[in-house]
Design a protein around this nucleic acid. Sequence first.
DNA 1: CGGTATCCTGAAAGATACTG
DNA 2: CAGTATCTTTCAGGATACCG
Lengths: 164, 164
Amino acid sequence: MDGTTRWADLDTGNCSVARTAAIVGDAWTLVLLRDLFNGLRRFDDLAAHLGVARTVLSRRLAGLVDAGLVEREPYREPGRRVRHEYRLSAAGRDLLPVVLALMAWGDAHLADDDGPPVVVEHRDCGAPVHVALRCASGHDVDPRRGTVARPGPGARLRPRAVDA
Amino acid sequence: MDGTTRWADLDTGNCSVARTAAIVGDAWTLVLLRDLFNGLRRFDDLAAHLGVARTVLSRRLAGLVDAGLVEREPYREPGRRVRHEYRLSAAGRDLLPVVLALMAWGDAHLADDDGPPVVVEHRDCGAPVHVALRCASGHDVDPRRGTVARPGPGARLRPRAVDA
DNA sequence: CGGTATCCTGAAAGATACTG
DNA sequence: CAGTATCTTTCAGGATACCG
């Protein structure tokens, strides 16, 4: 903020956080994404592992397919009829930082004494992976106080604020 | 995964994603966090900016206070009576990567033609900040395919799976 | 087995009205 | 102004039943 514009006057209609939250901002959806990242693909596996009602899972998956995050693909095991599996699309895989950031926060603030139930490792070297903030100049950014938010090129004033 | 344990057999009861999602996995809560990160602190400012019913805002704030993410602090403007403002606790501020990851995904996949409404900059150098994955050995990790998830020290088998 | 349509119920969103 | 109690209504979760 530069002092001439207040956040309170900015429109929320095109906020990327709000738009993304409208799609994945739901507890069931987030754990569903977690399971899809972990390689679960079959409807019944997902339903059993999540402990969610199948109707709910059906709706969530349909929503994610509609949003382009999940692809429903037919497959056929030898001698069996066609089934479908659900796998993340490229756009869906791009949500990995969201899921890892949630996991990291839970590990840091809510974990049991015996440690985190899941660790994510670098495929190449096996070291644990964490979420970091980086700037375009290559600096590491302190998440606690290294960031400043500013209105971007798509910023709009709130309708009410225009004639305020 | 090492082939001997399947994700489907792991318990979800202590999953950090699920625990975190249970607190913040809600569209209103996520945009509320966004506004708190952007420095909004007063109840009415938040209510007006979010466009949410005040009863709902009241409940969300109370929940976040209960969860330790938000602190409700009294303050007094000169000549006025005591009011309260709501600001993120240290734990709440630790959620910045979650919000930035959501924002980044929305910017990449849902933005309007005129660009993102908000940009986040490095306080020290002004360059735009992005969310990155890094491993403990210092490597950059490709979010698309550089990660492998494994059961961690706190992993538990699902009760049903034990005698399966 | 792999889902979806339907229904029921509880919870949560929001409007209204009230209090310090 | 800064909230909260209360009420109504909508909506999401889940059980059941049903189809491919």
